Amino acid sequence: MGVLSNLKPTESELEILQILWEKGDCTVRDVHEILGKNKDAGYTTTLKLMQIMHEKGLVTRDTSSKTHIYKALINQQKTEQQLVTKMIDNVFNGSAARLVMQALGNHTASKEEIDSIKKYLDELGNK
């Protein structure tokens, strides 16, 4: 199952990866400030998490300057695919349809998102 099967990022590590995927290279302070908008986490906690992520091979760290710069080492799309596949297998007994119905039933999707999903399903049907 690729890199992720060995690494298994925790929920907190995934939050940091999301920031690195969206913002690109970041310092611990950059990540900490973004995390702080949604949850109360101490700077040292963020630093420790990112050091552990570096040891696990989830991120790389540029130490050439005084302020270390972190970058995600794992690919967002592949990570998302592997996590969804694992969830479908473990939670939905292998049924992608049940996952989709549960997701759409619990969240209000915008008209644009629904249209995008319909287009995607049409493309899948034409393969």
Rank of each mutant, 00 (worst) to 15 (best):
M1G: 14
M1K: 11
M1L: 08
V3A: 11
L4I: 15
L4S: 07
S5T: 11
S5N: 14
S5F: 08
N6H: 12
L7G: 11
L7I: 12
T10Y: 03
S12V: 05
L14T: 04
L14A: 00
L17S: 09
L17D: 02
L17E: 04
L17T: 11
L17R: 09
Q18Y: 04
Q18G: 08
Q18H: 03
I19N: 00
L20V: 07
L20C: 02
W21G: 11
W21A: 02
K23Q: 12
G24R: 03
G24I: 07
D25S: 14
T27C: 03
T27D: 01
T27F: 02
T27I: 02
V28T: 14
V28P: 00
R29M: 08
V31F: 03
V31A: 09
H32I: 01
H32A: 11
E33W: 08
E33D: 12
G36F: 03
G36D: 07
K37V: 07
K37Q: 15
N38A: 05
N38M: 05
N38G: 07
N38P: 00
K39C: 02
D40P: 01
A41S: 11
G42A: 13
Y43M: 00
T44E: 00
T45G: 00
L47P: 00
L47T: 05
L49C: 04
L49V: 00
M50A: 06
Q51G: 02
Q51H: 10
Q51V: 09
I52A: 10
M53Q: 02
M53V: 04
M53S: 08
H54A: 05
H54I: 00
K56F: 03
L58M: 08
L58A: 12
V59N: 02
T60A: 10
T60V: 04
D62A: 05
S64N: 04
S65V: 03
T67D: 14
H68F: 08
I69N: 06
I69T: 13
Y70T: 03
Y70A: 01
Y70M: 03
A72Y: 11
L73K: 15
N75C: 11
N75T: 07
N75D: 15
N75R: 11
N75L: 07
Q76F: 14
K78E: 13
K78M: 08
T79L: 09
T79R: 01
Q81L: 10
Q81T: 06
K86W: 12
I88P: 01
D89F: 05
D89Q: 14
N90S: 15
V91R: 06
V91C: 10
V91I: 11
V91N: 04
F92Q: 03
G94Q: 09
G94T: 08
R98I: 04
L99Y: 15
V100N: 03
V100P: 00
M101N: 13
A103N: 10
A103R: 08
A103H: 15
H107I: 07
T108M: 02
A109N: 05
A109P: 01
A109Y: 12
S110D: 10
K111Y: 04
K111W: 05
K111P: 06
E112M: 07
I114S: 09
I114V: 14
S116E: 15
S116I: 01
I117S: 04
K118T: 13
K118Y: 12
K119I: 01
K119N: 12
K119E: 12
Y120H: 09
Y120P: 00
Y120M: 13
D122P: 01
E123T: 06
L124V: 13
L124H: 06
G125C: 06
